Simulated scan of single mutants.
Amino acid sequence: MKKVLLSLLAVAGCLLASSEAVKAQTPQQPLKIGVFDIEIMMQVMPGYRGVDSAVQVYERDSLANEYDFYQSEYHRLDSTYKADSAAGKAKSVLDLQKQSRQQVAMNLIYWQQIAENKSQQKRAILAQPITEKVVAAYKKVLDAKKFTLVLKPNSFEFFGSSAVENIFVLVAKELKVALPQELGGTGNVESDEAKPAGAGTKPAPKAH
């Protein structure tokens, strides 16, 4: 048994040494850093303003009407509960009314969060074709350029550093869309395609 154990340890040692030797002989990929943000790039795409306008209409009409309904429904349920309670209705009936009133009240209390979630879901649905185009172009650039690390614009100090490549320019070129100056472009498709990838300034934060 002791001989078998020693043999296994010897084999394990040989495999470990071999693995370390392979690692030592394999050249490490140089660190290649880029900067990009899918949501910011989507705002550059043709058609995104239409999505933004549609979401604003949805918030103004559909969500506003839904909030008004909850307010009206709460007052109705509250009045009914108080009237039935004063009339001495059965406890089971009052409990159901109280539960319904409480559910509507919770929607009113957390309406800001509920409305924001619904608005984001609506935007995601309307912008899906744009998202798919940007993601496809982004993946194509990543496969071609072999970036080691991709950072978002606001996650570091010096966006114009030569050590960091501006992926916005590369993706815009792939999509054939003009890139604004704050993302390193010139606002013209032909000029942006000829612009060095490292040029640019820090992108502005997302506007709502």
Score class of each variant (00 low, 15 high):
Gly47Glu: 00
Arg49Phe: 05
Gly50Glu: 07
Val51Asn: 01
Val51Arg: 00
Asp52Arg: 03
Ala54Gln: 13
Val55Leu: 03
Gln56Pro: 07
Tyr58Gly: 11
Tyr58Lys: 06
Tyr58Glu: 03
Glu59Ile: 07
Glu59Ala: 08
Arg60Ile: 01
Asp61Ser: 07
Ser62His: 06
Ser62Met: 09
Ser62Trp: 14
Ala64Gln: 12
Asn65Ser: 08
Asn65Met: 02
Glu66Pro: 04
Glu66His: 03
Asp68Thr: 04
Phe69Asp: 05
Tyr70Cys: 01
Gln71Arg: 11
Ser72Pro: 05
Glu73Gln: 10
His75Val: 13
Arg76Ile: 03
Leu77Glu: 07
Asp78Ser: 09
Thr80Asn: 14
Tyr81Phe: 08
Tyr81Asn: 05
Lys82Cys: 09
Ala83Thr: 08
Ser85Ile: 02
Ala86Gln: 05
Ala87Pro: 11
Ala87Glu: 10
Lys89Leu: 15
Ser92Gln: 07
Leu94Tyr: 02
Leu94Phe: 02
Leu94Pro: 00
Asp95Pro: 06
Gln97Leu: 15
Gln97Gly: 15
Gln99Asn: 10
Ser100Lys: 08
Ser100Tyr: 05
Arg101Val: 09
Arg101Thr: 09
Gln102Tyr: 04
Val104Ser: 07
Val104Lys: 00
Val104Glu: 08
Val104Phe: 01
Ile109Ser: 11
Ile109Ala: 13
Tyr110Val: 06
Tyr110Cys: 02
Gln112Ser: 11
Gln113Ala: 12
Ile114Val: 11
Ala115Pro: 07
Glu116Gln: 10
Glu116Ser: 04
Asn117Glu: 15
Asn117Ser: 05
Asn117Phe: 14
Asn117Pro: 04
Asn117Tyr: 14
Lys118Thr: 09
Gln120Phe: 04
Gln121Pro: 00
Lys122Cys: 00
Lys122Ile: 01
Arg123Tyr: 00
